[in-house]
Design a protein around this nucleic acid. Structure first.
Lengths: 125, 125
DNA sequence: CGGCGTTTGACAACGGTTCTCACCAGCTCC
DNA sequence: GGAGCTGGTGAGAACCGTTGTCAAACGCCG
């Protein structure tokens, strides 16, 4: 039952310091280089537990990697260039409202969403 | 340069018969049980080639698996229940328009997007 | 048909994630 | 504060989808 250990606090601390999405491996590396010895398995368990508790959001990279971010981070989406990978963060009240409405219409509650826009940026055309 | 072989035709045929998203492994299994002997690597290469050519769309499962669908399938998004996995397909002209507009404002062209809405469905509450 | 360049497929390798299991450490009750 | 129960930890192995390897097979062109 959710015991508060040194390792879990450390993982939470990393996400408190960092904006945006980060992988479990990245968190692990960050802790290690900070001199904090935490097992990789433990980091995986921690981020999963946190995601289950709704403290972290998660998405999947195009390559299949799982990324997490602190939930309180201001919500926004990514506009990614398919050629150079340049990323612009965009906010979308329109979409947020639409997603909530559509979900509600189908009886879904406690709704979140992920949206990724991919295109070719001006420089790469 | 894009030779038309028995194996590639077979993969294309599977997507012609099937609606929605399917994994490379699923396609492979389907071909095998149909008595069509095609290597797994070949299926992977075929779906990737097709995705590169824009003939297939791809997304990632929550578990990291890659799924593909025939591109001509009418564009829609998924509303997924986080508990039972039930999926509802929703169309969203609002979102389409918004995504195009936002991308255009940032100088992005040739825009596509993926949107996934996750919530808890009425039955699972 | 013959040759060449691509494709194929069995298998190995890879990388992220999850599992295993012996050891360790919060928490609770005394 | 200490003992004991219960859940957490971590090194390493296992797992699984995916990608790479390479010799053999095949499509295509002349």
């Amino acid at each position: 039952m959710a015991r508060t250990t040194r390792q879990r606090s450390a993982v939470v601390a990393v996400f408190d310091e960092l904006e945006g999405f980060h992988s479990a491996q990245e968190v692990h590396a960050r802790l290690r280089t900070a001199g904090d010895t935490v097992g990789l398995s433990t980091v995986y368990r921690a981020v999963q537990a946190l995601a289950d508790d709704g403290e972290l959001d998660s998405i999947r990279t195009e390559s299949g990697e799982a990324l997490y971010r602190r939930c309180s981070t201001q919500h926004h989406h990514h506009l990614v260039c398919r050629s150079c990978g340049r990323t612009v963060e965009v906010a979308g009240p329109t979409v947020e409202a639409w997603a909530d409405r559509v979900a509600g219409e189908h009886g879904f509650a406690d709704v979140s969403h992920t949206l990724e826009i991919v295109g070719t940026c001006a420089d790469c055309r």
